[in-house]
Amino acid sequence: MRRSFLAAILLAPATALADAPPVTIPADRVLGVHGKNVYSENDWNGDGHGDLAVLVLSETRDAVGLYLMTSTPETGVLAVTEYASALLPYDAARVAAGDLSYSFTISDEDYEPLIQMRSAATGLSLSLSTNPGSEAPVVFSIRTSRQVPLESGHRMDPVCEIFFVELLGNGPQTAKVHLPDGNTLDYDPGPGPRLTDWHYTDLPAPCLP
């Protein structure tokens, strides 16, 4: 039902977006908001007006999803343009126990939304980036690292480095997973999956905190 509703929104002409029925969710499903800020870092579609990203719990509350919205320059009114329902898993028990935590920041490199998931128990930390300015946003990259304590401080060891899109400093699409047995799995991850199609189960298990 929701999927068809969103599909209708996505297929609607831009002028009709402002008239679309509101997308409402219970407030306790909101995990984080990346709204307009003083640096205009979230004008992803480059029209001079801030856009909005909201990190949410899925309807089934077992996954983390993302709403992307863009504003109509004339009025500032926002409309939902994308909804990805299962970007990362969500485990309420591990969250309540203080193991899992999620945060929503912006990338230092391109100011785009960066979704982070950390496990205190495993020391694993995952970052998922996307490109909300695109007409068809994809999962850009997923990087997982493990925090290893040292006598003084700690170091971060890479666990998964998956680049669906060629990024500056990286080759074309590459995926490298450091398996628990010490071996490394290299493969071609293929083109960036549409944000709306991505499901966290597409990710190799060692990559998940």
């Binding site: 509101p22 407030a27 306790d28 709204g35 909201v54 919205m69 409309a79």
Partner: peptide, 14 residues
């Protein structure tokens, strides 16, 4: 628990 129009969200602290 209130229902929220996601387009009206402005900021959060978590």
């Amino acid at each position: 628990i209130p229902q929220i129009d996601v387009t009206r969200l402005l900021a959060s602290a978590a």
